[in-house]
């Protein structure tokens, strides 16, 4: 039972890490909270769930294509909801992102239907080892999450593009003075956000039933975990993701779901009072 709970927490934590990274890159690209984030995550999950079962043997080939496709779609969408408004007040951008979210939600209902779907790549999702049930999904999810985090860390800290990207997020004006092309870094941010969101969506659709109306809930959860961890640092995001996964699972196990929600949101209020910048606070020069 304890191992069952542990694997549950790790699975949820890994999905939250990927989702939160996508959220922060999208936020940095558009300079404001993107209210279409939940719908983008859902769209990735639903498209994966709709497309991949067509030929399961091609999943390994199709999944990267879908992920890449989603990131390109996100860049194209940015030319509709972000680029024409980038010099307008910040409220305009988040209002346009609300509109984008509603459009995506309705398109999903129109083309993929409103029924819940799940991508079931494994007929038997668990395998038994020494009397312990281990989810097969975790064998993919954990290495991919670790690999993604490591690649992103190296990219942001040891490549010129990554450093330029950090500089343009921390102080766009100064970065522009130093010759960094903000348009290029923004497009890179959108591309990375698209990849991360699509990957999170892929695993989300494998683990849970998804339907087109769940966008707001996903947005809220991701937003909360980035606040808990502090969205300035990679380690903060990872910490926030696993902490939320841990609280989600453990509190529901010990108490009940309604009580778990009350405790989580209560803790969030306390955290806002004591450490408004999150548990692992932003350090200048080391933002994601």
């Amino acid at each position: 039972m304890v191992t069952g709970l542990f694997f549950n927490i790790v699975t949820l934590g890994c999905i939250y890490v990927l989702a939160a990274l996508g959220f922060v890159f999208l936020l940095n690209a558009a300079r404001s909270i993107n209210f279409a984030y939940g719908e983008l995550l859902l769209a990735s999950g639903l498209i994966n769930a709709w497309l991949l079962p067509i030929n399961k043997s091609l999943t390994l080939l199709l999944a990267p294509v879908v992920i890449l496709g989603m990131s390109i779609v996100l860049v194209v969408l940015s030319f509709i909801f972000y680029w024409p408004l980038r010099n307008r007040p910040i409220e305009t951008i988040f209002l346009s992102s609300i509109g984008l979210g509603l459009v995506i939600q309705n398109l999903l209902v129109l083309f993929l239907g409103s029924a819940p779907v799940q991508l079931r790549l494994f007929v038997d999702p668990y395998f038994e080892l020494w009397n312990i049930l281990i989810p097969k999904l975790l064998l993919w999810l954990a290495p991919i999450t670790t690999f993604t985090v490591l690649v992103l860390f190296c990219f942001l800290h040891f490549t010129k593009t990554g450093l330029r990207l950090q500089a343009s997020v921390q102080n766009p004006l100064l970065a522009a003075i130093y010759g960094i092309r903000l348009e290029t870094t923004t497009i890179i941010c959108f591309l990375i956000a698209g990849c991360l969101i699509a990957t999170a969506g892929l695993f989300l659709s494998q683990q849970y039933y998804l339907s087109a109306d769940q966008g707001n809930d996903l947005l809220l959860k991701t937003y909360i975990l980035t606040i808990i961890g502090g969205w300035g640092r990679l380690s903060g995001l990872i910490f926030g993701a696993f902490l939320l996964g841990f609280l989600d699972v453990l509190l529901a196990f010990i108490f009940s779901y309604p009580l778990a929600s009350i405790i989580i949101y209560g803790l969030l209020l306390v955290l806002m009072l004591l450490r408004p910048k999150g548990l692992i606070q932003d350090i200048q020069g080391q933002r994601v």
Binding site: M1, G4, L5, N8, L12, Q207, Y208, Y209, Q214, D217, D248, V249, L250, A252, F253, I254, S256, Y257, P258, S261
Partner: peptide, 19 residues
């Protein structure tokens, strides 16, 4: 046990009630 329609993971509660 009350279940909110938005809950996506029921494994923790199932593990608990089986005790």
């Amino acid at each position: 046990i009350s279940i909110d329609p938005n809950i996506r993971d029921l494994a923790p509660i199932l593990l608990r009630v089986m005790q």
